[in-house]
Amino acid sequence: MELVRRAIERYVPLSDTDWSHVAQCWQEYAFVRGAHVSRIGEVEQHFYIVKSGVQRLSFPHDGEDICLGFSYDGSWSGAYDSFVSRKPSRIDVLAITDSVLFGIRYDDLQRSFNELPAMARFGRLILEELLVGRTTREIEQLSLSAGQRYQRLVDRSPQLLQLVPQKDIASYLRMKPETFSRLRAKRS
């Protein structure tokens, strides 16, 4: 549970009183490799932070899984757009290794936003971060070459290369698995 507090305090300081209110809303969830954390068509009930394991965010298209991203130790997880819009999720979140996540339910998180100014600020900062992240990724997808996109991943999240199947990373980088293998071979 200290992990949750540290994660929130990367954005805002929390007093012990604030934390005692927030802490009781977070619960641990375990997912066996292959289990869905979130499922297409279902409204996301939780906002998660990852304690251990790797999860893949994806949606099926033309018989393939298009990979939108990954979550792993210390990062946020879940189908966030469904969580905030309360509409059925358009993406699956799948545990690709055994995973332990801390989760807070929608109503509990909203209540903490309403009651605790620090948490409201946390909520706003998370949204801002996600927006900047999305835009950055969109620009990179549209402007960088395959080689540059690969290099960005190696610089930013080298651990993913060890944790995630190659075909998922290739899909995430919007390249064919063969292109990915070639780039990888060239680099090493």
Partner: peptide, 11 residues
């Protein structure tokens, strides 16, 4: 057999 179905979790 859970692994052949939707998988298992604390849910």
């Amino acid at each position: 057999d859970p692994p052949r179905n939707q998988g298992a979790s604390t849910q």
